[in-house]
């Protein structure tokens, strides 16, 4: 009888319910490479990028019990964790406010049906769609999503009006969405 690997959601459940260190290790090994690639884009310094990866996964360890597969896909949840770490690190220099987790997470509705498709296939489609993006759309997506710049900063860096930046982001995301939902 074949032994099936636990899903990402099952690993998170094991971490949250019983502080399962081996489940945590398995989850880390599945996702750390991608989280590290993400961290390097906004923190080119290797030491800082390693710190960010640790911060993200420590937060996974602490918050895994809050993951609800009926409300968000693992990738959405993990992206949100990473995004909160980005915000926390900014607030470390300017300490104020609370954890924005508390605001958005409780009101997030269910994950879209698109998440029912097999994760690896979906990621391949997104990769293809990103590779096919026109350079101007790819640039704004990189600056905003990966480097963590505000859209106003993206407008300044690229030298195009804010309205153009917004429409490029919108078009890029529509292309990704169409690829994920439509194929």
């Amino acid at each position: 009888m074949p032994i099936t690997e636990p899903t990402d959601a099952e690993l998170l459940h094991a971490i949250g319910a019983s502080n399962d260190r081996e489940a945590f290790r398995a989850f880390f090994r599945r996702w750390a490479g991608r989280v590290h690639a993400w961290a390097l884009r906004s923190h080119p310094d290797a030491v800082q990028a390693d710190e960010v990866v640790q911060d993200v996964f420590l937060r996974v360890w602490r918050h895994a019990a809050r993951f609800d597969p009926a409300r968000a896909a693992v990738s959405t949840w993990l992206w949100t964790v990473a995004r909160n770490v980005r915000v926390d690190r900014m607030r470390r220099d300017h300490p104020r406010w609370l954890d924005l987790d508390d605001v958005v997470a409780p009101t997030e509705p269910e994950a879209s049906p698109a998440y029912q498709v097999e994760a690896a296939q979906q990621s391949a489609r997104v990769r293809d769609a990103v590779a096919e993006l026109p350079p101007d759309q790819l640039t704004v997506l990189n600056l905003a999503y990966w480097e963590g710049r505000t859209l106003s900063e993206v407008a300044t860096v690229t030298g195009v009006p804010l309205g153009t930046v917004k429409s490029r982001v919108r078009l890029a995301l529509e292309r990704l969405r169409a690829r994920v939902d439509g194929e």
């Binding site: 490479g33 991608r34 959405t76 995004r83 994950a111 879209s112 990621s123 997104v126 995301l173």
Partner: peptide
């Protein structure tokens, strides 16, 4: 955020 998750999942190690 869903788009962010999709982009994260699609990153190469």
């Amino acid at each position: 955020r869903i788009s962010g998750g999709e982009l994260l999942a699609a990153l190469q190690d």
